[in-house]
Design a protein around this nucleic acid. Structure first.
Lengths: 225, 225
DNA sequence: CGTATAGTTGAGTCTAGTCAAGGAATGTGG
DNA sequence: CCACATTCCTTGACTAGACTCAACTATACG
């Protein structure tokens, strides 16, 4: 079991990266790999979640809803990201698979016990929490103060950055999910994309494909008045 | 210098709570107390901040602005809260005093060096980062999906909770700042407060005073998920 | 090829923003 | 203590941007 993590896709970028071989072997006895189908929910909003996980492949969404059913996507997890409510807090959001995903699953109890005695791991978790917090706060500016066109332009740029595939994007989100990220409706997202396409700033060669032609224009739009 | 933190207002609730006496003595040689006048800015958005701080008294706001000058308050720091960009990140937001404040100031370099070798401190920082992240994400639901009246009702309830003074609130925020927290305009905030007052749900005995008469109504209006 | 799902477009409405004016509270100097 | 200025807050009239409802089109899939 010692080298069960050897071939793990997230090994080098994930939280386990900082662990020494013997510590990693111990952690690997606590976790187990699992798959989720697209749409399956791992953790429910408001529930006392018993598990945490490391994402190996695919993408997860973190969502919260109002009583009247309006949904807001609070964040998207990509491979090597860690999800789940550590240290005794109930989850304020649901975690749901956007695509088919593989995860490395731990019980919250086991993982917390392990982390508590491995400072290198907690240090890594802290860095990640701070990064996530930064990202969440930047998004608050978007949700509180940006217009529809600014939001859509910002999202395209952020996706481009996080997917790391340059100007050719394979969108991990459908239109409704883009709307749920941006705090807009599906119709508004569609209209703004059409505007950007008409202006020649982007191309939409397929339902889930997007090409950036005018990055400078997008950057200007993402911050304009 | 060993007991310089002995009389510190934030000692028991702050990050230093978990430190043993000798470690605390060491940390105290790195930090120094300072005061800020209301309106003074400690850290600027986009700047490579060299300092981090622990808030001892008063309140700080974390803000970001769009290119066109619209401001969004990303969070409010209360006594014993920790602020500042740890681990090599530029600050994505400004930190400004809402009232006169006292802080315990560290250079980022000193503090990071110390924390790196004191797991108990990093553990505490991690717990705080996770709490802040939760709060930021809950706020994203408000900013993305709630109506003006829902936002104002939610804010009143949250202030009531965090100030811990029951139904009698001494508001730490002016109307413009409430608007900047909620992603609204000052006029809209004023109108919603007037509506709540007319409905008898709240009273506004003074500019900075607010009394909750119908908490259940507020909760219904805030549509807590 | 037909159906189901996802996305686009259009018309009309409504909420919150904008612009403008007027009041109420706070502070200052005479 | 009062006139005055300043700042903060409220209210009103109008506008604009995003939402709603509805129809239509494109794409994926058996």
């Amino acid at each position: 079991m010692a080298n069960r993590c050897g071939g793990c896709a997230a090994r080098l970028r994930g939280i386990c990266n900082e662990l020494a071989a013997d510590q990693l072997a111990l952690l690997s006895t606590l976790g187990r790999q699992r798959c989720l189908a697209a749409g399956e929910t791992l953790i429910w909003e408001g529930e006392d979640a018993a598990v945490v996980a490391n994402l190996l492949s695919g993408a997860l969404k973190l969502t919260a809803s109002t009583a009247s059913g309006r949904e807001q996507i609070l964040g998207i997890a990509y491979p090597s990201d860690f999800v789940g409510p550590l240290y005794g807090r109930r989850s304020g959001y649901s975690v749901t698979a956007l695509s088919d995903v593989e995860i490395c699953l731990f019980t919250r109890r086991d993982f917390e016990g392990f982390a508590r005695h491995h400072p290198a791991l907690e240090h890594e978790l802290l860095k990640r929490a701070l990064t996530d917090l930064d990202r969440a706060r930047r998004f608050m500016l978007l949700l509180g103060r940006k217009s529809a066109i600014e939001r859509v332009a910002s999202l395209i740029l952020e996706l481009s950055e996080r997917l790391g595939t340059g100007g050719q994007l394979e969108l991990p989100l459908g239109r409704q999910q883009m709307a749920d990220v941006l705090g807009l409706t599906i119709e508004t997202v569609s209209r703004q994309l059409t505007l950007l396409k008409s202006a020649g700033i982007i191309a939409l060669p397929g339902r889930r494909a997007l090409v950036i032609n005018g990055r400078a224009d997008l950057e200007a739009l993402s911050e304009a008045a």
